[in-house]
Simulated assay, not measured.
Amino acid sequence: MLGDKFRLRFEKAGVLRLLSHHDLMRVLERMLRRAGLPFKSTAGFHPGPRVVFAQSLPLGVVGRDEVVELELTEVRDSGAVLTGLNTQAPEGLRFTRAAVVPMRTTAMPRRIVYSLPLPAERAGEAATACAALLAQDAVWVERVRPSRKGLNVRRYLRSVAVRDNTLTLDLWVTTTGTARADELLRLLGVDDLLDAGCVLERTLVELRDEAAAPLDPTDIPPDGPADTRPADPSRAIPDQPVASTSVAVPGDLAAE
């Protein structure tokens, strides 16, 4: 299909999961130039490709079905765009789909899913922790950006469960935020598994304009901002990464 704006699905895995969002932007620009794709550029003193990621991927996390939108100055075939990018992509980065979208369309995430393999001896304990977490009316975490505060992320938890020795975090994404996978892993007591070599994967980024109508009418993202409270000054808060400002990322919110 011919068009000048494309929505691309891609996989970022292997050692490339350690590549930051900012560095991924640089890699993508080089790929576009080497593939000979006539991309639109941003304005300002440091112009770059006009690309929008639906949701930036946390450092160290494998992305299995990520989303980026690309604008071109000339019409191209979606198959040629996909082939051109994959020809220039480094190992660990693979584009799986390319679809033409209207120029005014923006990929807005609705739901994201993470998965973490668990050692068999930890699965039962993790499942109990998941049930206890979902039974709470409020799940408070501490945030430092854009200002230090406590945030109740319970409304963002669609499902947190263990199946077949795999922890699955099924999270709503709204215009006001979402839950962070690293925070939930700490609350569930399994964050040490990352240091032990287990790799967290994001297996799904569901977009608003692609989501099918739910069978259950109540199975929809929440409205409005999450509850907040003053931060506990006695509690140490781990450093939280800042998303790159070199590209507009509408899904990359302060609550992610």
Rank of each mutant, 00 (worst) to 15 (best):
W172R: 01
P58R: 03
T96S: 15
L187A: 01
L57S: 03
L59E: 10
H21K: 11
G124F: 02
V67R: 02
T174S: 02
A135V: 06
A99V: 14
T178E: 06
I237F: 03
S246Y: 15
E210G: 06
P217W: 08
D182F: 02
R202G: 00
P58G: 05
P238Q: 06
A132F: 09
V162R: 01
A80E: 14
I237P: 06
P217L: 03
A138E: 14
L82R: 04
L204H: 04
D192T: 11
E210Y: 08
A213E: 12
I237S: 04
G36N: 10
L193V: 08
L185K: 01
C130A: 10
T105P: 12
G251Q: 04
R34E: 07
L18N: 15
V205I: 11
E201K: 14
T128I: 10
R154D: 00
A231C: 12
G36P: 12
S78Q: 11
L82I: 04
R180L: 05
G48P: 11
G251L: 04
L134I: 04
S234H: 13
L18C: 14
D219R: 10
S20N: 11
N165L: 04
I112Q: 01
L82C: 09
L133P: 03
R186N: 03
H22R: 15
A213P: 05
V139M: 01
D219A: 11
V242L: 15
A135R: 15
M1N: 14
E29H: 14
A120D: 13
G189K: 03
T166P: 09
A181R: 00
L37F: 05
L85S: 02
R33W: 11
I237G: 04
G60K: 08
A35D: 11
A127H: 09
G79F: 08
V199S: 07
E256V: 07
S56Y: 04
L16V: 01
G224A: 13
D216F: 06
T176Y: 10
R208F: 02
A181H: 00
D137Q: 12
A254E: 13
E201V: 07
A126W: 00
D192G: 11
D223V: 12
